[in-house]
């Protein structure tokens, strides 16, 4: 609580830092570098942003990227949560799947791009697949560890109250008890998935997309436009994280207020 208040009180320090950074960037770009290809100035970037807005492609890029991201994340949730639950609940399932997961997990998501193209062709699904590979492991690991760290007393209390079947215990006790950990895993997964987006769109799965057009403008040597896309990727990533946190805390974890603060 104390920390939060302090951050709130000194919010203007953060704003000041942003302004200073913009100012220094502008001076370095306009006075020292003076070559927009090497370092476009903030003013160049802003006019490029207005130009791109005028083109009307930004909305289409945003939509295409969100579709790729959505496919990857939904698939990761659909696969990761059940696997994490099964491994967290059953020692046998854990022993069975653990070696496979541990071998696959360190492979960088981008190393899957060749197979993504071979299996799914140049479609939105191959971009989604790369994002899926990035997002699925944090979800599995966090669901698993959330299930493993459920206090035994909750399970025993539930058993004494007539909740004895595995299915009911998972649904009514283990899943809600593990939810904070699962939510943290999904949050990490959205971050990793979003970072895979640029590379996932790089190999030309669609005509639009934030990552796709970032490369497009690089090829056109429009570095001011490249910076616009970089900033948009950062801001949208931040926005997704904030919306996710707000939504999860509000609807699923409100019982934790006061416990963590």
């Amino acid at each position: 609580m104390k920390n939060l208040k302090q951050i709130n009180r000194y919010w203007w320090l953060g704003a000041l830092a942003l302004l200073l950074a913009l100012l220094i960037w502008e001076i370095v770009a306009e006075v020292i570098v003076r070559y927009s290809f090497i370092l476009p100035a903030p003013t160049d970037v802003f006019s490029a942003f207005l130009e791109l807005l005028g083109n009307g492609t930004l909305a289409l890029d945003f939509e295409a990227s969100l579709i790729h991201f959505g496919i990857g994340l939904l698939a990761a949730l659909a696969v990761g949560i059940p696997i994490g639950i099964a491994m967290g609940w059953s020692r046998k399932f854990d022993a069975f799947l653990d070696p496979i997961i541990e071998i696959l997990r360190p492979i960088p998501p981008l190393a899957w791009i060749p197979f993504a193209i071979i299996w799914f062709g140049l479609t939105i699904y191959s971009a989604g697949f790369v994002i899926f590979v990035g997002a699925v492991f944090p979800i599995i690991i966090n669901t698993y560890s959330g299930f493993r760290s459920i206090p035994r007393i909750y399970v025993e209390a539930a058993k004494m109250l007539g909740c004895t079947k595995s299915r009911d215990l998972i649904r009514h006790i283990a899943f809600p008890a593990a939810l904070p950990s699962i939510a943290a895993g999904i949050r990490i997964a959205t971050g990793v998935g979003w970072m895979c987006l640029v590379a996932a769109e790089l190999f030309g799965v669609s005509n639009y997309g934030l990552g796709k057009n970032l490369w497009q403008y690089y090829n056109l040597h429009r570095m001011d436009c490249v910076v616009v896309y970089m900033i948009l990727l950062g801001l949208i990533g931040l926005l997704i994280d904030m919306v996710f946190r707000y939504y999860i805390d509000r609807h699923f974890l409100k019982w934790r207020t006061g416990e963590v603060a």
Binding site: I153, Y154, E156, A157, A158, M160, L161, G162, C163, D168, H172, I173, P176, A177, L179, W255, R256, E259
Partner: peptide, 28 residues
């Protein structure tokens, strides 16, 4: 369920409100 148990440690389910904790056994 014919035996009620009150634990030494706090055993309420933190994700359930007081009423939903109390009604848990009946819900099952």
């Amino acid at each position: 369920p014919n035996i009620g148990f009150v634990f030494q440690e706090y055993s309420l389910f933190p994700w359930r409100s007081v009423i939903d904790n109390t009604a848990f056994g009946l819900e099952m």
